[in-house]
Design a protein around this nucleic acid. Structure first.
Lengths: 143, 143
DNA sequence: TTCTCTGCAAACGCTTTGCACGGAT
DNA sequence: ATCCGTGCAAAGCGTTTGCAGAGAA
């Protein structure tokens, strides 16, 4: 399970393999995404990396994330209408968002229809499954 | 299958039963939602009803939809990050959005986990499943 | 009169765009 | 010298908020 902690070197190789120029900002953003389980928003990425890169701008984060999505390295999650979250986990899985603490968990379940098949005549290219509720850390906690 | 065409009278009774004052705007908005299969955005609702109610404002539509969501009459769908769509179908079902024509179809499938149960220790309160791809009307059509 | 609904206008917050500076080759 | 990445500032766009006028009871 040590793909959970990629080094900067690993990330650099990965970017090169995907034909993306591995600038410092891109390295740090992808490293953060790959090592965090938190499905961060742009704002969380910004606030975290800003401590280390005080010149970082949100524009660069948007540019970079959109580039990564375009190249298929990450996917954007739309759980709440006004915030996009980003996920570097490429295996099919579902998400669970806790309405109390706001955390988003990966849920390793999958089910038909599979991408590439058809449902009721429609060709499936992407599928997204997410749930909301109270996570196990917040169960029993006062509102 | 004639719940697909509710009359204004039906809609009025429904609002009264839910303890919502049945103003003309509210009646028309709910009637439109209940009779359309298209999961409209605010903009679509606005442009459609504006023809009949030229004084209608988007603010009223937002007010009304948020009231309906609060009272549990409808749900908001977040498929694309920058647009909320609204659905008056309260049975559990999935959605399919065509990336060519933009239409959203109801897909009558459902699967575990059910609302009220737990997954990996988390209590499920809501679940959402949607797919994207090419709908059967657009299959084979040139891009 | 009192309370609620409506709708204009302005504010808001996230994301994108325009553009110029700077670093790398 | 050229190209590409970065990041400031402004624009864009869907949604919410403030508030005043209209309508119902």
């Amino acid at each position: 399970m040590d793909e959970q902690n990629s080094t900067l070197g690993d990330v650099k190789d990965y970017l090169l393999q995907k034909k993306i120029n591995p600038s410092y900002q891109r390295l740090k953003i992808l490293e953060y995404l790959m090592n965090s389980q938190s499905h961060p928003t742009v704002d969380i990425i910004y606030r975290t990396l800003f401590e280390e890169i005080p010149t970082l701008s949100k524009t660069t984060i948007y540019n970079t994330l959109n580039l990564f999505i375009e190249k298929g390295l990450i996917t954007g999650l739309t759980i709440e209408e006004n915030e996009v979250r980003y996920d570097a986990n490429t295996a099919p899985h579902a998400h669970f968002k806790c309405t109390m603490c706001g955390k988003v968990f990966d849920i390793p379940i999958d089910f038909p229809p599979q991408v590439g098949t058809t449902v009721y005549g429609h060709i499936v290219k992407e599928k997204h499954f997410y749930m909301k509720g109270i996570c196990k850390d917040c169960t029993g906690r006062p509102a």
